[in-house]
Amino acid sequence: MDPEEVEFLGEKHLVSIVPSFTSESVHLIQGDYGPFRAGLPIRVPLWVAVNLKQQKRCRIQPPEWMDVDTLELIKTDEKLSRVFTKMPSEFYMVEVKQLLGCASDDIPRADEIRTIVKDIWDIRMSKLRSSIDLLVKNHEMYAAVDNLTMMEINSMRPLLPHALDHIYRMKTFQPNVGSQSQTMSFSTHSRVSTSFQS
């Protein structure tokens, strides 16, 4: 999966906005939102919020956790804990990126938030790599991956199963020898010829 696809999923998350216009409710596939009253906060999907903000028709209220002190706390927790701590939002990277991208004037100390979130991300990725290394080195059977967010899983997904495939192959590979090789090569041959026809 591409990061863009994860972003797409994350854009369904709700955020609070304060609209500067009045309108009837809108009917979307995801659900109905509205009616919009100027000055009254309302929760809408992230993509709607970004769109309205770009048209300068609303003010975005940042989520509670998007605040320097809270994030500093999360960062310290993450650093001290050996396991992954629970993130305030499943799509924290997407939300931070989208909201800071279009509404940095609505969010106090946006620059600092950006740096802290990147730090948290780096710490978690470094942890993730260490635990993968541990998993592979010790030939563990399974790993508990609580509290990992989708973006983090996604960034490791191509590499880890690929490497595990190779390990599995090294454990099970038997070169086909002797009388077996006749039948084996025959069967591969017939399979190849069918794929030529298609």
Partner: peptide
């Protein structure tokens, strides 16, 4: 193996860069 990891990393980096305010340390 390197290539599959590297491709994912590059995609992530370019995703982080496309926004108006890139997330970076």
């Amino acid at each position: 193996v390197f290539k599959s990891g590297h491709d994912a990393k590059m995609k992530l980096v370019s995703w982080l860069k496309v926004s108006e305010m890139p997330l970076e340390a």
